[in-house]
C-alpha cells in the first residue's frame, strides 16, 4: 500500500481512511482486533506516532475501542456508522464541489442531472 505524501490529506488521515476501508469491506469485522500502531508503522513505513494518531481518529469516533492490555477492537455497528458518516460528509462535499465545477463550466441544472443519470445507466449496464 502506497501513501500519497503529496496529498492534501495528512498521512494519519489516510491511515484512518484505509482502516475504515478495511472495516467497510469486512476484512476486519465487528469485535475483531484492529492493527496496532506498531503494525501500521511497519506496514506503511511511517512513524508509530503518526500511526497512533490515525488510530485515535477512529477511537474518538468510537469506531474502535480500547480493551485494556489487549489493544484496539472494532466496535459493533462500526460499518454502519462509517457508511452513514461518509454519505453525509464525503459524498456531501463531493456533490458541493461537483455543483461548483458545473457552475464554473456554465452547465445548467438539467444538463448536470442528465449527466448524472447517464453515468448511472452506464454503471447499471456493466
Amino acid at each position: 500500500m502506497i501513501l500519497n505524501t503529496d496529498s492534501m490529506k495528512p498521512i494519519y488521515v489516510q491511515i484512518a481512511e484505509w482502516l475504515e476501508g478495511e472495516i467497510l469491506s469486512e476484512n476486519i469485522k465487528d469485535e475483531e482486533r484492529i492493527y496496532s500502531q506498531y503494525q501500521l508503522a511497519e506496514m506503511f513505513t511511517i512513524n508509530p506516532a503518526t500511526a497512533a494518531k490515525g488510530l485515535n481518529i477512529l477511537a474518538d469516533e468510537a469506531i474502535v475501542y480500547k480493551k485494556r492490555g489487549l489493544g484496539m477492537f472494532v466496535s459493533p455497528n462500526a460499518k454502519q456508522f462509517i457508511l452513514t458518516r461518509r454519505k453525509s460528509q464525503i459524498l456531501g462535499q463531493m456533490i458541493k464541489e461537483l455543483v461548483m465545477e458545473a457552475n464554473r463550466l456554465e452547465v445548467s441544472k438539467s444538463e448536470l442531472n442528465g449527466m448524472i443519470q447517464q453515468v448511472r445507466r452506464e454503471n447499471e449496464e456493466e
Binding site: 505524501t5 498521512i11 506503511f44 513505513t45 511511517i46 512513524n47 503518526t50
Partner: peptide, 9 residues
C-alpha cells in the same frame, strides 16, 4: 525532507 518525513516524529 519529503521522502523521509513519514518516518520522523
Amino acid at each position: 525532507l519529503s521522502e523521509l518525513e513519514g518516518i520522523l516524529e
